[in-house]
């Protein structure tokens, strides 16, 4: 057993390695977030964190719960497929508490043109006009009722919704 006579220096080395391993394990436990590796090589808690963000757009179902008169108007025209917030903007705050925030009054001359200004890249079947020639600068809602845009003689005045244009 002559060769194991000087085993002491090996023991010392083993102690140093053991301390290093323990320190590594302890530090790793402290530094790596608890949910890391829950689903994969990332922090699992990031998923609910991302999902916790508040919404800005309420969704048309929320609008339709109260504004049934507008829904009825829209059903009669082509704009039935256009969601309320496409024109009226993000209104989740209004949907939560209608008194806290009112939708802004819209400028139809700008708003309608966003979709209906003529452009050769638009699908040919889509109704488009060169607004300068079409209305001569008049606001679109002089003739068209935005919720039910097709001009039907005698129905324009009655086509206005109860909540429309109110501040």
């Amino acid at each position: 057993m002559k060769s194991f006579k000087d085993i002491e220096h090996l023991l010392r080395l083993a102690v140093v390695i053991a301390i290093a391993v323990i320190a590594f394990v302890v530090l790793r436990e402290a530094v790596v977030p608890r949910s890391f590796g829950q689903y994969g090589h990332y922090r699992g808690a990031a998923i609910p964190e991302t999902a916790a963000r508040p919404i800005a757009f309420a969704g048309h179902a929320a609008c339709e719960a109260c504004h049934t008169d507008v829904v009825d108007q829209k059903k009669l025209g082509k704009h039935v497929v256009v969601a309320c917030e496409a024109c009226h903007g993000a209104l989740a705050r209004h949907a939560e508490d209608p008194t806290s925030m009112q939708p802004k009054k819209l400028d139809t001359a700008v708003l309608c043109a966003r979709c209906h200004e003529a452009n050769s890249a638009k699908p040919p079947g889509f109704p488009q006009v060169a607004t300068a020639d079409h209305s001569g600068g008049l606001a679109c809602d002089t003739c068209h009722q935005p919720h039910r845009p097709k001009i039907e003689t005698g129905k324009i005045a009655s086509g206005k919704s109860e909540t429309e244009g109110k501040k």
Binding site: I47, T50, A51, A52, R53, P54, I55, A56, F57, G59, H60, V81, V82, A83, E85, A86, A90, C115, F126
Partner: peptide, 20 residues
């Protein structure tokens, strides 16, 4: 819009797209 689709809503872009 992960914060919307997990609540049963559609994304903001799909919500407002006027032509679907």
């Amino acid at each position: 819009c992960y914060h919307r689709i997990t609540k049963g809503l559609t994304t903001a872009c799909c919500e407002v797209c006027p032509t679907g």
